[in-house]
């Protein structure tokens, strides 16, 4: 079966700065793939190419077999996105926002249930502008999940969450993958990758330093040791 997410020799530059420099990796349905790498390694740029927000300069980005750039509404409905900056309208409250987004899908996740799963009901009266970072993070995650997508792209989904909330999000993402969703997340947390990822991609300077199952990449060591070995090598 073709992978749900395929990146092949992908290149993208901002002016003279090369963000992604010939990266190739893939992610499968029913698995959680964690993309790790230092700041500036090209994680967000790669994910934005996969979300259809950027057009690659060269190479291929394929999601569910489709080129995401200018893809159809049918394709976009199958892909859930959580952006690093959230992308939430600042003057809205979370439940009206989620109900509105749910209305864009034929068969959305019931909003009350989703809000309860993510603890959003506890701050339902707060406008986005007045929310804490962690609260915003949970609403942004809900916006990615509300359409019950087949592929989920999450840019640092648990950054800024307290340990309880983080564990709840991890359980939720594992259960989404268990239901057959392809979950791709970027993270700086080795703990997060080791706790929930099936597969790991390590990017440095826009290239893939390692990719494969968590155990294959770790090779019996801790992910942290392997990561520093790989990223230090690339920077020499």
């Amino acid at each position: 079966m073709a992978p749900a997410v395929l990146v092949h020799d992908l290149r993208h530059a901002f002016g003279r700065t090369t963000a992604v420099d010939g990266a190739s990796w893939s992610a499968s349905s029913g698995r959680v793939t964690a993309v790790l790498g230092p700041n500036g390694a090209g994680k967000t740029t790669t994910v934005e190419c996969l979300e259809g927000l950027r057009r690659p300069d060269a190479g291929e980005a394929r999601v569910l077999g489709t080129d995401p750039w200018r893809a159809s509404a049918e394709h976009r409905a199958a892909v859930g996105v959580m952006l690093q900056d959230g992308g939430l309208p600042t003057t809205t409250r979370p439940l009206p926002l989620l109900r509105h987004l749910a209305a864009l899908y034929a068969d959305p996740w019931p909003v009350d249930d989703l809000a309860a799963r993510l603890g959003i009901d506890a701050f339902a009266r707060t406008t986005v502008r007045r929310m804490s970072g962690g609260q915003r993070q949970r609403v942004a995650l809900a916006t990615a999940l509300v359409g019950r997508p087949q592929v989920l792209f999450l840019d640092e989904p648990t950054a800024g969450l307290d340990p309880h909330a983080r564990r709840e999000v991890w359980d939720l993402l594992r259960s989404e993958a268990g239901g057959g969703t392809c979950v791709v997340l970027t993270t700086h947390s080795f703990e997060e990758a080791e706790r929930i990822a099936d597969d790991v991609v390590v990017l440095t300077a826009g290239r893939v330093a390692a990719a494969g199952s968590l155990d294959a990449v770790r090779g019996g060591r801790s992910l942290e040791d392997v990561y520093f070995g790989l990223t230090a090598e690339a920077e020499r």
């Binding site: 979300e51 259809g52 927000l53 509404a73 049918e74 976009r76 409905a77 892909v79 996105v81 952006l83 900056d85 959230g86 992308g87 939430l88 309208p89 600042t90 987004l101 864009l104 899908y105 916006t143 359409g147």
Partner: peptide, 12 residues
Amino acid sequence: SGVLRLLGTTPL
């Protein structure tokens, strides 16, 4: 605030 980008990724 990224609202235009986020809505661009939804079916809208």
